[in-house]
Structures are given as structure tokens and as C-alpha cells.
Computed example of a mutant assay.
Amino acid sequence: MATEHFSARYQDLDAWPSLDILSAFLEGQLAAVAAVRSALPAIAEAAEAAAERLRRGGRLVYVGAGTSGRIGVQDGAELPPTFNWPEARLVYLMAGGPGALLSAVENAEDSVEQGTENIRNADVGPNDVVIGVAASGNTPYTVAALKEAKARGAQTIGVSNNSEARILAVASHPIVADTGEEVLAGSTRMKAGTAQKVILNLFSTLLMIRMGRVYRGLMVDMRATNAKLRRRSVAMVIQITGCDEATAANALSQSDGVVKIAALVALGLSRAEADALLARSEGNLRVALSNLSK
């Protein structure tokens, strides 16, 4: 596996000056990001397919072990505040259980039984989207989880840093960023982890766009949970509708802070009318505004 290879170039790394070490690390990080470019078509295809499942009420299920599992949890945890994605439609399956998020659990990633059982216990079904992340792509826990999820009819996405990975073979949507050997041999929290984070960022953000949770580059489903975000909500309503600040603030007050509804209220609809129009438009503000102008 390339991610486990030792590089003769870095064999005396610990004896280098600090700036040289950091330059090598940075070079590796930039290379990791560049490695994602070839995966863009696969990421786009996976996101488009995932949107179809989620429109039917499915869930996003993140599966992984160690660093890869933690990166998956981080990606999913950002979706509720950023896009108001329902927390009930997020599932995190981590080898070794929730405690493994903060502390390593010995041998957890080797458990085929736990990977299979976790998918069964989560009652994964045909509307769900299961994302397995593994640098080596051969982690028994993650491979087993994807196999079981696929057998249950779920969409399965495998993210790996090795092109010959088993996880890619069992996933309906394989995504690979071949980051090669690490500056620190085998330390996949570095290049491999960076590429995984980029892939998941791209995938989930495109997915939320396809789910109608972005309009004109704005996070119109954002949860305004502090003063900064409330100010941002006012600015978004102004930008969308062209109204003044007082009108935007009043519309948000009538709309429980929901930007999409507030924009429609600021344009002259009642709260009930705005709710109904947005519901008919499947929550998509662009569609709602188009219907409003007809």
C-alpha cells in the first residue's frame, strides 16, 4: 500500500532544520489537495445519486476507524448548523464506538463482526447513503460495514487513498485520491487525512446544494444561533430581496429566523403563504421564487 511506504527522501527528517521539516509537510499537504482533482467526476456522480436517496427521506451514514472515522464525524457534524440538515438523519458508525472519537480503541478496526452489526443495528435501508472512509481502503470494519449496507440496498460510497483498495471494490461509488507515501511513513493523518477531508467537504457541500439548501451562493438554511449569524441572516434577506434592513429584520422575526421563509415574507407574502409556497417547492428557494413570479 502506497500510504504505508517508506520514503528514503525523508529518512533523516528528524535531523532537519524546523523550517525544512515544515516545508516538507506543507509540500505534502498541497500534493494531497491536488490528488483530489482526478476524483471530481466520481464525487459529483456520488453526490447526485445521494441527493435522489435523501429526497426520499434517507439518512447520511458515516463509517470509519481512527483518523478516517473522526474526519467523517467532523464532516457530518457541520451539516446541521451550516445547512440545517436534521440531526436525526445523520448516523455515525465508528470502530470501537463513540469513545474511539477521543481515544484509540485497540483492534477495533479489525472487527468484521462489529462493522456488520453496526449497520444492522442502525437499520440501514435503500434510502440511506453510507460513506465508508479508509486511507488504506482495506480496514476490515469499514469494508464489512459497506458490504452489509450494499446488501441492504443502500447507496455505498468508498473513500480511499489507495487505488487497489478493497473498499473501492465493494462500494457502488468508489472515490480515490492516491496520495502516495507519507512524509512520516504510515502517518495517514497527514496527506491521506487531508485528502479525505477535502473529498468529504466537496461531496457534502455539493449534496446540500442539490438538496436546495443553498441559493445564489448563500447558506439560506443556516441556523442563526448567535449574534453574528443573526446579522448574516439579515444581510442575506437584504441581498435576496433588495429590501431595507428594518424590513429584513421584521420578516425574520415573523419567520422564526428562517432565511428562506423571511425572504418570501419580505417580498409581500404572509407567513402562511410563504410556508405553503416553500413546501410546494420542496424547500428550494430558487424554485419558490420562480413560482412566485408566474
Rank of each mutant, 00 (worst) to 15 (best):
P17E: 01
T194P: 13
V112Q: 06
D110W: 13
A39Q: 08
A177S: 15
G99I: 01
L229M: 09
L218H: 12
S290E: 11
M211G: 06
P80N: 04
G64Y: 07
A227K: 12
L102F: 14
V63R: 05
N284Q: 11
E48V: 14
W85T: 07
G212F: 10
M222V: 11
A262Y: 04
E181S: 14
G193E: 05
G96Y: 01
E113P: 02
A249L: 09
R271Q: 08
L146Y: 09
D75V: 05
P126D: 02
R56G: 06
L30T: 01
G186L: 08
R55E: 07
E273F: 10
E181G: 12
R230C: 00
E117F: 08
E45N: 13
L13C: 00
P140W: 09
A266L: 10
I175Y: 11
M1R: 08
E45C: 06
R89H: 11
C243K: 13
I131R: 05
K260N: 04
M211P: 08
S187H: 07
A95C: 07
V133P: 13
V265A: 15
N138T: 13
G64A: 06
A151Q: 14
W85L: 10
L22W: 14
L101Q: 13
T82M: 07
N107T: 06
G283P: 10
A274L: 11
V133W: 11
I71W: 11
T3F: 12
G212M: 09
K191Y: 12
D20L: 05
G180L: 09
P126C: 05
L13R: 02
V105M: 01
A77D: 06
L90T: 03
A39D: 06
V133T: 07
S172L: 10
A95P: 04
E164P: 03
S163C: 03
V237I: 03
F25K: 02
I119L: 11
V33E: 01
L168S: 13
V237E: 10
V105F: 01
M190D: 01
A274E: 03
H5A: 15
T67G: 12
E52W: 12
A134K: 12
I175E: 04
D14H: 15
A88S: 14
L79P: 11
H173T: 00
I119C: 10
A249D: 07
A2W: 05
S270G: 15
M222D: 02
A251E: 06
I119E: 03
A32N: 07
E78W: 10
A262P: 00
M208F: 08
N161P: 13
A34H: 14
G268D: 02
L90P: 14
A35G: 12
A145F: 03
T3W: 06
V129E: 02
L168P: 12
R120P: 00
Q239P: 00
A31K: 10
L200R: 06
